[in-house]
Design a binder for these strands. Structure first.
Lengths: 145, 145
DNA sequence: ATTTCTGCAAAACCTTTGCAAGCCG
DNA sequence: CGGCTTGCAAAGGTTTTGCAGAAAT
């Protein structure tokens, strides 16, 4: 029987080879921590968990590798980060189309999206105020490159 | 004929009275700028526009009033800001339930949401990678308060 | 008259960067 | 080895905070 650990390691090694990045101890542990922990950790939380196994790792390395993994499609951001907060008038009935490459945001009307979730209450008693949909992909311009 | 300006001002005054906040010149101009400009400005961009009409306004005031307006439901954040980046394993097929009060994030399976947008290409040639849905509302706990 | 708000400056965060030393292929 | 990666420390950018004076109710 192949251990979980060994299986993960070989998977991770292949994954790095595909992406053309070096297999370092730090990256391996960061990857394992993310798989094991689940949830939606911040870089600081990831740092804390990785540090349990590599006490000398630096926060900068965690940031660098989180970026690398996001660019490689191993990780993704829970809410897209545009460098600073962006606001709009509430009550505008539209959703957002966001280019994952150039980060541009444009609006899309709800009716253009077709079918939409409509539930007003979720299991556990959560009371829905609204659905915010981000359509994530490549804008016409970024597809060219 | 009542001018647009006058109409907006009375609307804004009522709005402040409802929310129990003072009607200041700064807030009035910030509100008008947001209505007129549209789009998804950052605080710096809002600051720049307001400063055209109130050259002495401070960036801190812009931030304070953006927050106030977000809390009052006049404005909303385009992508929810959790204080720092949050990441998760890519490829997990779920969406997010976010409490607008306590900012907690939990996962929800796509099948629990019911109907979903499915379009793979949008007008203008945008190529869809995925739909990211945030269900925004009040968690059971925050409804009590 | 009170309470709330503004502007300033400093502080607090979060994130990125430059570089010398170390590790991977 | 040669190039990529790490850890450190410093810098950069955004957002928040405390407070005295000004404005709103």
């Amino acid at each position: 029987m192949i251990s979980m650990q060994a299986e993960e390691q070989s998977t991770f090694r292949e994954l790095c080879e595909q992406r053309g990045i070096a297999v370092t101890h730090q990256r391996q542990v960061l990857y394992e921590v993310m798989r094991a922990a689940g949830g939606h950790p911040s870089p600081e939380e990831v740092y804390a968990r990785v540090r349990e196994r590599i006490p000398t790792i630096s926060l900068a390395t965690v940031y660098k590798n989180i970026h690398l993994f996001v660019e490689s499609g191993v990780l993704r951001e829970v809410s897209l980060h545009h460098g600073s907060v962006r606001v709009e008038m509430a009550g505008e009935q539209h959703h957002h189309v966001v280019c994952s490459r150039c980060k541009s945001i444009s609006d899309i009307e709800e009716r253009e999206l077709g079918p939409m979730p409509r539930r007003e209450r979720l299991a556990g008693g959560f009371l829905v105020e609204r659905y915010a949909i981000d359509v994530i992909g490549l804008c016409a311009n970024c597809q060219k490159n």
